[in-house]
Simulated scan of single mutants.
Amino acid sequence: MRLFKRIVTLAVVLGIAALVIPDSAVKPTEMELVKLQRASGVDADNKDIVWILAVGSDARPGEDMTHTRGDALQLIGMNLKTGAASAIGVPRDSWVPIPGYGSNKINASLYFGGPQLLGQTVGNLVGIQPDYVFVTRFKYFQALIGSIGGVDVKNPVAFSDSALKPEGFRKGRIHLGPYDAMVFSRIRHNLIRGDFDRSANQQRVIRGIQAKVRARAHEAGFLEQGVLNVMQYLHTDLSPAELFKLAQAVAQVDPSKITTCVVQGGIGSIGGASVVLPYTDQARRLGDRARDDATLESCS
């Protein structure tokens, strides 16, 4: 009964927000949520699995975040029936074919063709075309972490960065505030496996966000205020009804049923730039395993 009341309240808040905040003119757009062309999304009948490509844009102030290079790429699947979820991390420097633009680093597809092309490019690598692409700036990401009171992650190995975090992060369970969550997700140079370990750290932060939201969802006004905050900064082509259904899907994820993997690859140099040469066979195996139920039994 309590869950039903929260869902009803959330639906009302979404409806009111859609009326009083009709577009991104109130405040600068910090997030973009688009439905990919030909994607069915949560509105489709018998749609049990929903896929969202989450992207952290490295756009500078004044730049269009939907046409810069993506810094973080996570393909997230949610099973609306079982509550399972999976995340497939794609290193941003992966050298892949980009439809209509030859081969380049995979994050360049956001610059060339926006969320639609990035979604298509990641989908071609993994074999799962996302239903939605969600893009956010790292500045708003920090605000999000602050609004939920930070996140807890289990860090497998101590690491630091002389510019971003000289004192570093210790091994073990640690609490991350807004700035620390951002740099924890972005540092790669002193990680053992560079881009691959960074992608895994991004998944740890995503787990932390989901766990914190789930833990605080019972607090009066927590979900409602969160929705209002998001709506003020969000530009989207989704209807309020579809946004509500998508919010339901996220809320129903069971933390014990979340599985994550990162697409692996070799390190090479093309045109003088360091690139990741992704193991495409492994990427397709991950897609095949997760496609039907949003679970990953192994990462090999």
Rank of each mutant, 00 (worst) to 15 (best):
Q120R: 03
I209D: 09
L228P: 08
V133K: 13
T280P: 09
R170L: 10
A54L: 09
E30V: 15
A211C: 01
K154V: 12
S109N: 00
E224C: 01
T66L: 10
I192W: 13
T68D: 14
N79S: 06
E63L: 00
Q142G: 00
Q282K: 01
V122H: 12
A294K: 02
F4N: 09
T236M: 07
D180W: 00
R188S: 09
D152I: 00
L243Q: 06
K105E: 00
R198P: 03
R2D: 13
I16W: 09
R216I: 07
M78C: 05
L3Q: 14
V227H: 10
N124L: 11
R289S: 09
G149V: 02
V55A: 12
Y101D: 08
F4W: 15
D58W: 07
D180P: 05
V133C: 07
K35H: 13
D237S: 01
P22F: 15
W51G: 10
F141C: 07
I98Q: 01
S94P: 08
Q264E: 08
N124T: 12
A273D: 06
V153Q: 02
F196T: 11
S24N: 15
A158G: 01
A143Y: 07
K5E: 12
L277R: 06
R69W: 03
S162K: 12
L243Y: 05
Y132N: 02
L73H: 08
L117G: 10
G208M: 03
K5N: 11
F141M: 05
R38G: 13
V153G: 01
G62T: 07
L36V: 06
H218V: 14
V20L: 13
K27P: 09
A158S: 09
G114H: 05
Q264S: 13
D71P: 05
V12Y: 05
Y279S: 13
K47M: 09
M182C: 14
F222P: 03
I7W: 14
G113P: 00
F222V: 02
F184D: 03
V227Q: 11
P278Y: 07
K139Q: 15
K81L: 06
N190A: 08
L277E: 11
L10M: 06
